[in-house]
Design a protein around this nucleic acid. Sequence first.
DNA 1: TTGAAAGCGATACCAT
DNA 2: ATGGTATCGCTTTCAA
Lengths: 338, 338
Amino acid sequence: MTTIHQVAEAAGVSISTVSYALSGKRPVSEKTRRRIEEAAAALGYMPDAGARMLAGRRTHIFALTEPLRADTHAPTHMAFVLATSIAARRHGYDVLLLTDEQASVGMSRVASSRLVDAILVLDVAPDDARVEIARSIRTPTIFIGLPDDAEGLTCVDIDFEAAGRLAVDRLADAGHTAITLLGQPAVSYRTSNFSRRLRRGVESGAQARDIALETTCSGELATDAGVVRAVVEAALARGDRAFVVHTVTDAHEVLLSVLADHGLRVGHDVSVVSAATAFDTSDLRTPLDTIPLVPSQSCDLAVEIALHRLEDRTSSPRIHLIPPEYHPAGSVRTLADR
Amino acid sequence: MTTIHQVAEAAGVSISTVSYALSGKRPVSEKTRRRIEEAAAALGYMPDAGARMLAGRRTHIFALTEPLRADTHAPTHMAFVLATSIAARRHGYDVLLLTDEQASVGMSRVASSRLVDAILVLDVAPDDARVEIARSIRTPTIFIGLPDDAEGLTCVDIDFEAAGRLAVDRLADAGHTAITLLGQPAVSYRTSNFSRRLRRGVESGAQARDIALETTCSGELATDAGVVRAVVEAALARGDRAFVVHTVTDAHEVLLSVLADHGLRVGHDVSVVSAATAFDTSDLRTPLDTIPLVPSQSCDLAVEIALHRLEDRTSSPRIHLIPPEYHPAGSVRTLADR
DNA sequence: TTGAAAGCGATACCAT
DNA sequence: ATGGTATCGCTTTCAA
């Protein structure tokens, strides 16, 4: 093992100079800095993590809590974990996993043992148990998602309400007067807040634009092709020609296949907007207008806020809502087609 | 923050006694131990992670490297991460995530900074780049999976070859003389070793039992319902009435639906064994005999081996293959049905 | 611009 | 059975 002493000796300087040269926390003459860097590289020096944690005020580790619920959509979840990890590494941070039902206990543990500098909370439930833990510890905690009671918390999330309104606005602009929301499985409205918020946005958007709205679920526990098919058939029977889709891939395909069965051309006879989807809709048979859910947006911001909180301990909690983006792909009919 | 000194003072003993009492590494009289535990609990004492890492020879952290490839099956992957995390926590260990393409760099980093005591390697590819990294570092590294060249490595995995043979044996015992292996998507045979090993086991089993074998893939890049349907139709046309299924959920459903279309009763007219599946086949319309892939089996063992390696640094690398288990559910025809 | 040295908070050895 | 203390390798103040 190479220590800072050996690097110092090799470079002919003191250990403090080595420390400062490598951390950049104090100006070091160009020449000695190069010597130190060369020595460090030659010896394969890497500061001891434990020593750094003990002496410094940073551990360079974030905890990431993720309560793997049964209804967790694995691919989306993984995308968030990956995005968080990449964002953290970009700032020299590693990610410690706090999985399973022990997430709450784990938070207290890593906080009081000073194992991590901050905690990032994924997959936030409306009445998340981690909320009260977060309030009880001094370790900065950032929620990626919005619980019902966010008092005193720092949260980062997409503005799902705005996303819902945005989707409706586009459809209303295209001249539609009746919209069907093809929503998440019913269980999602019980366990997640983002689905509710999106639905609320769609509802308020419809009200504001005087649109007739039908909101539906894509199944009970999971997305059910039969349910989706029935919902779409009913919508078409009502005369609805505009859909806001907020669910997983499969339902998109069912929707498109039903529309095709009816000989309806997406972007001409009917309009479809896919809202808050984490996957790539360009793989679908018909490209869809999307309001994408980009994990890196939330995760990058969460990491930055965490770091900022470490710099400035006095900065106060806040809710950061990221404005939704609309990505057109021709699936909403234009004025020319009316 | 509570330190060991404060606990010592509160309990009226020295810090070394506190350390020993809490770690149990030295006998401490029943009475003083209770006093110490009470004081620690009252003060909410939790040893400082950095100090422990520096002073002790353990960090109590495992690294878990996972290269999230495009074809990674997210739910299965998550199950392995969860199983590892649970096994680690059971021994007082936390799990540090090493994601993305930087997995190799990350391994060297956490090894030379002594951030972790051992590294667990998930989702092992046949020619995994992490193999050479593992050979170049001193940190004990356990592969959960088997690379082509495992020389000098410690690996834990299900014995997929035995699983393949087992599946064939059961079908042969039931009197079948022709079997179709409904395999993974083609890409899987390029990126994973376990699919190859299972196929090899099926092949050698078929040879040993003098069974006509047809091996197929369930699509090119991903499981493709059309391909699966065609494969099953072809098998039925050939007269095959026995299937070994080794792929994800969807293909199972397609298989069952085709069989139903033909009026074939699973467990009577046809036999089906699902091999090395991580998901719950009892959700299918027809329960299937399975040779389950239980993540906790591999992960628990991997963690135990890692800990053992830390105790006894001289213990030599080894490949640990876990024997497959056969779980009957009535989907293989019995003698009575012939 | 650089160096010396005081901690950081545990563990574990050496005493008693 | 318990206590004193050297030690781990770094960060950071204080001095020069």
